[in-house]
Every structure is written in C-alpha cells, then in structure tokens.
Amino acid sequence: MLMRHIVLFRRKAEVPEDALLEKTVTERMASLGTEIPAIQGWKFAANELSRPICWDYVLEAEVADAKALDAYLFHPLHQALVADLKPYFEWAAVDYTT
C-alpha cells in the first residue's frame, strides 16, 4: 500500500496574474518529484478547461506511508517551494492510503 497526496492549486483571486512567476514555480513543482527521495510517484498537470469549479493545477504524489509523507513535506526543497507559492496560490490537499 502507498499513501497518495493530492493537492489542487489556484491563483489567489486578489493577486494579479504574473505569468513569469507562475511559469517558474510550476516548473519547480513539476520537477520536485525527482529531487526528494521519499517520493515514489509524481504527476503534475495544468487544468485544461475553463470552468468556475476548476482549479488551475493538480499535483499527485505517492509515498510509502505517513512517515515518508512527512519526509517530503518537511524536506528543505519542498519548504522553499511552499514559501514561494504562498503569496500567489491557495491550495487544498487530500492524503489517503491506496
């Protein structure tokens, strides 16, 4: 069994769009899966449809268990990315065992 970590991201409504910043942080999100040893699976994608209910991006990560999830969440590379994401994006997460 694995633990799956799913996160939805969208630009904060009160924050002006910054295409360069968004490109930079989403490229970092896309590549993070190869940089942290606890991660066993990694998918990152942009939303393809424009509907009010849709979020802008989805991240799906797989790790061995809750301990491995903590290793990922508290890894310095993840923490640095979170610090850069906070001013621009809001997000919602779900963690569950598969």
Results as ranks from 00 to 15, higher is better:
M1C: 10
I53W: 11
I6S: 11
A45R: 01
I39C: 09
F44L: 04
P87S: 06
A46K: 12
Y72N: 09
L59A: 01
K43H: 06
P87D: 08
L59Y: 07
I53G: 07
L20R: 15
W42V: 07
V63Y: 12
E35H: 03
L77M: 12
W91G: 07
A64V: 09
R11F: 00
C54T: 14
V58W: 10
L73H: 06
K43V: 02
A71H: 06
P37D: 15
I39G: 01
I39P: 00
R10A: 05
E27W: 02
D70F: 01
N47W: 08
E14D: 13
K86T: 13
K43N: 01
L20G: 05
T98Q: 12
R28E: 15
G33E: 11
H78L: 00
T26A: 05
F9R: 08
A92V: 10
Q79W: 04
K86I: 11
M29C: 10
M1N: 14
P37Q: 13
S31H: 11
R28P: 09
F44K: 09
V7F: 08
P16L: 08
P16N: 08
K12V: 03
D65L: 05
N47E: 14
L21Q: 14
A92Y: 03
H78K: 11
A92S: 06
A13Y: 11
R4V: 02
T34F: 00
H75S: 10
L49N: 15
Q79A: 06
D84W: 03
I36C: 03
V63E: 12
A61H: 10
H75E: 13
L81W: 12
V63I: 04
I36Y: 09
T97K: 11
Y57N: 02
R4E: 09
Y57D: 03
L59R: 03
E48G: 11
A64L: 10
L85D: 12
K86Q: 15
R10N: 04
H78D: 04
K12W: 01
W55T: 08
S50R: 15
K12T: 04
E17S: 07
V15N: 11
L21A: 14
R51I: 03
A66G: 10
Q40C: 00
V7A: 13
P37F: 01
H78A: 02
P52K: 08
L73G: 07
A92T: 13
E27V: 01
Y57C: 00
I36P: 05
A46L: 06
A68F: 05
E48L: 08
I36H: 06
T97D: 02
M1E: 15
M3T: 11
V25H: 13
